[in-house]
Design a protein around this nucleic acid. Sequence first.
DNA 1: TTGAAAGCGGTACCAT
DNA 2: ATGGTACCGCTTTCAA
Lengths: 354, 354
Amino acid sequence: MAKRPTVYDVAAEAGVSIATVSFAFTQPHRVKSSTLDAVLDAADRLGYIPSASARGLAKGRTGALGLYAYDYLVDASFDVRGDNAPSSGDDGRLFPLYVDEVQRGVQLECWDRGLALMIGGARTTDHVRRVTDIAGRVDGLICFAGAVDLAVLESLSERIPVVELGSAVRSAQLRTVMVDNRTAMRELALHLTRHHGLRRIEYFGGAGTAEFTQRWDGFVEAMHDAGETHRAAWPSRPGYAATTRESLDEVLSAGQHPEAIVCSTDQEALVVLDRLHELGIRVPQDIAVTGFDGILATQTASPALTTARQPMEEIGRVAVRELLDALDGRQADHGEPLPTQVVIRRSCGCGPTD
Amino acid sequence: MAKRPTVYDVAAEAGVSIATVSFAFTQPHRVKSSTLDAVLDAADRLGYIPSASARGLAKGRTGALGLYAYDYLVDASFDVRGDNAPSSGDDGRLFPLYVDEVQRGVQLECWDRGLALMIGGARTTDHVRRVTDIAGRVDGLICFAGAVDLAVLESLSERIPVVELGSAVRSAQLRTVMVDNRTAMRELALHLTRHHGLRRIEYFGGAGTAEFTQRWDGFVEAMHDAGETHRAAWPSRPGYAATTRESLDEVLSAGQHPEAIVCSTDQEALVVLDRLHELGIRVPQDIAVTGFDGILATQTASPALTTARQPMEEIGRVAVRELLDALDGRQADHGEPLPTQVVIRRSCGCGPTD
DNA sequence: TTGAAAGCGGTACCAT
DNA sequence: ATGGTACCGCTTTCAA
């Protein structure tokens, strides 16, 4: 690998100064066209690749945004599919989860705007070091709520704009792309109580972040509206199928089956679907099931899963725009949270039940 | 946004020289532990974020790899799903295509190795400028075959290692992660001719890159083995559903239906499935259909699509390792191409036909 | 174990 | 329209 040519090499080759080379690339119109050609030619001949490091150092901006992601897919074995699943030849993976779809939105928006995207992450460890590393590489950072300690993000946000993807403003220092989780979960549960007249409903999920708290709140509200005083949520975590399965088994072994199981995420709902199928319990005839997020797999699950869809790609795109606003010194317009949308399919009891 | 603290600020705060600060971060063991603490403390207090630009410039390495991707999903309207598709509430997207799954492999491998990943791309235009920009930001570049002109890649590869993902070594200067497309397509077609005894088979697809040439070759070989002299491929491009649909309509209007349609990609096969469904032509009873790639959607398509699966995540991971080898000065071991695997499902006529 | 100082490859201001 | 030249923040000898 030959040494990379620098502005100096190009300047020498073209017989001009390095300042002119720089101009030629950054403000072509300010350079005499014959000079411009000479420089561009020389650069081409030499295979000149501008160093982003040098440029970034000099300008104080890198021209790249960062996304700190993490892997929801904790269980390596996690693999849910429809009933017409293949019998062989497929590996454990899978379909895009929430993070994947949001990431796609970020990516597309960056590309559309000519920005480079730095994607960082770690499987489980060392989040602080890794996110700081990424922060040092970019002009602005997008981060999923829950991936990194709030204190760390706040510290970073003192130096570069940070956008958090969540459902509540956790800190005035951060910009937040919000999604209304409560309303959708409430409507989802109301659909069960009103449209289907169900009452004995169990909720599966935790309350780690604001999203989950909101979902739980929405559920509780709906139950209250239906005149039910609801006890508590069954412990269950997306990405840890065992937690979901254990709660399910416990629920089922407690005498009378519930009429419905409301899950805090699609990922958990799919596990429930899978387990119920194993046990020969029919969905929705015996038990209705609902999810949350609207990931792709819910469309093709069997039965198709009733859920609430988050506008995932849009979340990503909005996050990029927020960052750009911040970099341009525009105020955050803490507007309405992005809406989620209830998606009625079959697992709640709607539509033909085969 | 306050100015970012630098090594100078940290040095002053800790009462040491900038060299010591640098050492504290890069070679902690070479610094007296009390000094180390002082520096780390100061850095923490100040919210110090090391500048990757400065570091990259000084070291001559950025510590990041680049992936130049592009969007196969040309048709905005492209949206194929199983028959138990939802009736509402879903947007046009989608499921991970070949590129998405490979990208995931790249991403995971980078994370596992503590590398940052720069993802670049453009929707349609300006590929040369964009890929060069990315190249200037990273230590090595991964590129999908077909995304960028070979000459450009060769030029870049004179300065940084470049790995191309394809199915043939197009240039000795590039490292290539190869996948054997020919064999799998041949076996797929042989399955149709031998197991199902089919003869009148039409091939849909182009021959833009080596992958596609190989697939076509594999198909032709199989037909030859079956004693059939095959005419030609019907024009069809993944991402341009109209091309596929037009060819299909033409094929169908030409009197006797073919017994099978072999497509060069899953994306096209899904379009074929969709169109045949519209026309009331049953798959596989009336016409068998096969795809290629093994993207997720083939599992849940209706009927489940018989196809050949590329080890997509592995392709991405291997590419990263290749790059690392190159950066460490290790020779390329141009080994065996990664194997593809035939996946027999229902669209060829195997299994229950509902 | 720590410090001084010379780069790394650009940018941008100030001259010419 | 171009050239000269201080930086930008960090790494890395070489000395102390």
